[in-house]
Design a protein around this nucleic acid. Sequence first.
DNA 1: GCTTGACCTCAAGTTGACTTGAATTCGTAG
DNA 2: CTACGAATTCAAGTCAACTTGAGGTCAAGC
Lengths: 154, 154
Amino acid sequence: MSLLDIGEIARRTGVPPSTLRYYEEVELIRSEGRRGLRRQYDGDVLLRLSLIGLGKAAGFSLGEIAGMFGSDGRPDIPREQLHAKADELQRQILGLRTLRDALRHVADCRAPSHLECPSFRALLKSSARRPLIYRPSSGQSDRQLAPGRRGRAG
Amino acid sequence: MSLLDIGEIARRTGVPPSTLRYYEEVELIRSEGRRGLRRQYDGDVLLRLSLIGLGKAAGFSLGEIAGMFGSDGRPDIPREQLHAKADELQRQILGLRTLRDALRHVADCRAPSHLECPSFRALLKSSARRPLIYRPSSGQSDRQLAPGRRGRAG
DNA sequence: GCTTGACCTCAAGTTGACTTGAATTCGTAG
DNA sequence: CTACGAATTCAAGTCAACTTGAGGTCAAGC
């Protein structure tokens, strides 16, 4: 089977070579070898990159995404994590709806100041206080990415 | 009318003082004066902070949020642009809904591996290449935030 | 009048996800 | 053989959105 070199992968996926190298550095993908200097990738990485793209779209961090590939390399996404993410998306959707309505209100309302408009205030009241979505900043289920050599400056 | 000092705002909203100062620096909020050193805020900022929280939850950058709700509390962009933004939100909502449903489906799907689940494959296919949801990273309609003095080292 | 504690300023650090730049190394076409 | 172009390495830069830390200040309570 023929390996694809990095430029080919980049062209097919739209993911720039620098990013591919970065992903490799943090062990999200791996290359099978070199032709001269050029990295050669197995066709599998195309699928893997789709998966990564999907994960990013869903709002997972690279660390979380890395955790979703079993040590054997094939995806093994825990179902409860998917549900949790779906719930988070749900909350995000609610927030977006509120924001959308707020925006439309602001665009149309003739009140001198929106802050004084009762319906605007009512709109916002629902979302005040607690964070609308849980932003995983340093999560517990977050696998540690390979750190590379970045930061070990001399 | 009584002004609230920064600690009070922080306690009521959960937004830490350092963040409030930062927001003020980038002109997302403003304080009305000082009592001694302490910043004093009008009660309006509570509402404003809700708005900001909402925008953040929706994935907007602070710059975009600033553009939606001008420094004085009302939008500094024309109505049609606001409507355009709302429409954009609507599209984003649809994308998120699709993603959410797909996530749930995959979570519940009994296929032995996610890769074998047809709807998962379809999802992958649709998300390959172009982003499933619009991620505002460095948009064109993004208002420039006041830069503060950060970086002007000497 | 002194202490305390909450605030202040300003510079610099942090994190995640990359990108950029300089100096270098190949494989191939001419 | 030489040039070229595409890839390489490694260090460092970028960006957003904050946080942290050092050193300073003020109002209130004892």
